[in-house]
């Protein structure tokens, strides 16, 4: 008997993002749809940034995870509209990002507080960081650098 969709979403929520392994691909909001088409499982993903090199790895990781659960017929497709937004990040994902040392995105355009010491005295070092989705900031209180998840 084919597993129900809630079960599959749960499995996908255990697939870590390859760059930021503390959050899942579901937390990241890039799994847009999961549906059965007969005995074929359709999984629709959307890229974060158009050139993000993790996108192909993510598709492969999703396929591998589902195969490991015994799903042999999986079709992964890419959908670019509507474009990915950080609004799709789950609350669980946001909390885990901060625990991991990455300040979660905010519409105000900058981090709310230092993910380590919670200070609000912050400075932007660079608009870009170690991956396309992050910017590089510094805390003026504990003096530690940290990543900020860009808001788009």
């Amino acid at each position: 008997m084919a597993p129900d969709l809630a079960q599959i979403w749960d499995w996908l929520d255990q697939v870590p993002d390859p760059e930021i392994p503390v959050i899942s691909v579901v937390d990241l909001g890039i799994v847009r749809d999961v549906a059965w088409d007969g005995d074929m499982l359709d999984v629709v993903v959307t890229p974060t940034y158009s050139g993000c090199p993790a996108t192909t790895v993510i598709a492969l990781d999703i396929e591998t995870a589902l195969r490991d659960r015994g799903l042999d017929r999986v079709r992964i497709s890419t959908r670019i509209a509507p474009p990915w937004t950080t609004d799709w990040l789950s609350d669980k994902g946001r909390a885990r990002l901060e625990d991991y040392g990455i300040a979660p995105p905010r519409p105000a355009g900058g981090p709310e507080r230092c993910p380590r010491c919670r200070s609000t005295d912050l400075a932007r070092v660079s608009q870009f960081g170690s991956t396309p989705c992050k910017a590089h900031w510094r805390c003026n209180t504990c003096l530690e650098p940290f990543d900020y998840f860009k808001c788009i």
Binding site: C52, P53, F128, G129, P132
Partner: peptide, 16 residues
């Protein structure tokens, strides 16, 4: 920082 910013910009452009 500029090296990383330029590489990220290039990556976006190649993705597009």
């Amino acid at each position: 920082e500029e090296d990383i910013a330029l590489a990220n910009t290039a990556l976006d452009l190649i993705g597009q």
